[in-house]
Amino acid sequence: MKKLILIISLLMLALAVVGCGGGEKKAADGKAAVKVLKIGTNPDFAPFEFQDEKTKDYAGFDMDLIKALAKQAGYEAKVTSLAFDGLLPALMAGNIDVAISGMTITKERAEKVLFTDPYYKSGLSIITKTSNTAINNLKDLEGKKIAVQIGTSSAMAAKKIANANVREFNNVSDVYMELKNGGVDAAINDLPVNQYYIKTANNKELKIVGSILEAEDYGIALDKKNTEVQKKLNAALAELKKNGEYDKIYEKWFGKQIK
């Protein structure tokens, strides 16, 4: 009976080792416990997050940043791939601790989850086929077929365009494919992502037109109850900007930062 009670007690103790910053595991020396930060991302948003074809590791600006932030805050980063529109539900269900995926801080999202301080300022842009001379600005999209990624600020912006036929896709790669195949007249996506795609794919079929539609701040999302991790990540972000580590990560992916 004593052995049974001991086993039950140990099982209960093991189940209790779960906190706001994820689970814990022993450090290499076996002396200290390291909190694991469970990170959700949609690795289809280069150069912010993508899966390296050779190593299969998750790479990109967001990935480098969240790993540096986790380390600064005393966590071990563990990244999980999820669909973009599944990130916030996963947060609220407690399946992940944070979500970083080029996510714009919006009023609608802030009603459901917490956000860290902004870590990147972006903006939306229009991308069309190079041969398309009819679309040159936002007004020209009225009544046109537009591809966007589901659940994004790009989708929200497209739905405000008069008489537009908005087609939503799970992945950005599908958005570009639909545009290249002629299924839509244009696509709306984050400017740096559009730029990176055209540059890395050496793609002369597509071009960016018009000016930036609207400025956007990216933030790291957390569950409403996860205020402790929010504070730690904000402090870590401030420190990385102070000690120059943030600038190093930024320049690796985007070049010299204009301040």
Rank of each mutant, 00 (worst) to 15 (best):
residue 252 K to N: 05
residue 219 G to P: 02
residue 156 M to L: 12
residue 210 G to N: 03
residue 183 G to H: 03
residue 224 K to M: 12
residue 155 A to W: 03
residue 89 P to R: 05
residue 255 G to S: 09
residue 91 L to W: 03
residue 42 N to D: 15
residue 63 M to C: 04
residue 40 G to D: 12
residue 119 Y to R: 04
residue 215 A to M: 11
residue 20 C to E: 15
residue 55 T to Q: 09
residue 203 N to E: 15
residue 167 R to V: 15
residue 248 K to D: 00
residue 11 L to M: 11
residue 110 A to H: 10
residue 145 K to E: 06
residue 81 S to V: 00
residue 61 F to V: 04
residue 85 D to M: 04
residue 101 S to Q: 08
residue 78 K to M: 11
residue 43 P to L: 09
residue 213 L to T: 01
residue 56 K to T: 15
residue 21 G to A: 07
residue 76 E to Q: 14
residue 244 G to A: 05
residue 136 N to G: 13
residue 79 V to T: 12
residue 236 A to W: 04
residue 50 F to D: 02
residue 186 A to Q: 03
residue 237 L to I: 08
residue 210 G to P: 01
residue 6 L to K: 13
residue 256 K to T: 12
residue 60 G to C: 04
residue 192 P to C: 07
residue 167 R to L: 14
residue 155 A to P: 02
residue 74 G to H: 11
residue 113 V to Q: 04
residue 83 A to P: 02
residue 140 D to N: 11
residue 49 E to Y: 14
residue 133 T to S: 11
residue 151 G to I: 04
residue 112 K to E: 09
residue 222 L to Y: 07
residue 61 F to G: 00
residue 156 M to Y: 11
residue 77 A to E: 03
residue 248 K to I: 06
residue 254 F to V: 02
residue 141 L to R: 02
residue 132 N to L: 03
residue 48 F to M: 13
residue 258 I to Y: 07
residue 227 T to W: 08
residue 40 G to F: 03
residue 233 L to E: 06
residue 174 D to E: 15
residue 137 N to S: 13
residue 255 G to R: 01
residue 87 L to V: 10
residue 113 V to S: 01
residue 137 N to H: 03
residue 125 S to Y: 01
residue 13 L to F: 13
residue 81 S to K: 11
residue 74 G to W: 14
residue 147 A to H: 00
residue 186 A to P: 05
residue 51 Q to F: 06
residue 111 E to W: 00
residue 31 K to Q: 07
residue 245 E to K: 13
residue 221 A to N: 10
residue 51 Q to N: 09
residue 229 V to M: 06
residue 125 S to G: 13
residue 195 Q to T: 14
residue 218 Y to K: 02
residue 157 A to L: 13
residue 141 L to Q: 00
residue 35 K to H: 15
residue 84 F to C: 00
residue 238 A to Q: 09
residue 105 I to M: 14
residue 143 G to S: 08
residue 96 I to K: 02
residue 153 S to H: 10
residue 131 S to N: 09
residue 147 A to S: 14
residue 226 N to Y: 07
residue 215 A to W: 12
residue 1 M to E: 13
residue 188 I to E: 01
residue 209 V to G: 01
residue 190 D to Y: 07
residue 106 T to G: 00
residue 1 M to G: 15
residue 251 E to R: 07
residue 198 I to K: 03
residue 101 S to C: 10
residue 198 I to C: 08
residue 7 I to T: 14
residue 3 K to L: 11
residue 197 Y to D: 07
residue 255 G to M: 01
residue 10 L to W: 12
residue 206 L to E: 01
residue 59 A to P: 01
residue 244 G to C: 04
residue 204 K to A: 15
residue 236 A to M: 01
residue 56 K to Q: 15
residue 154 S to D: 06
residue 59 A to F: 08
residue 167 R to G: 05
residue 56 K to I: 10
residue 92 M to R: 13
residue 257 Q to E: 10
residue 83 A to F: 09
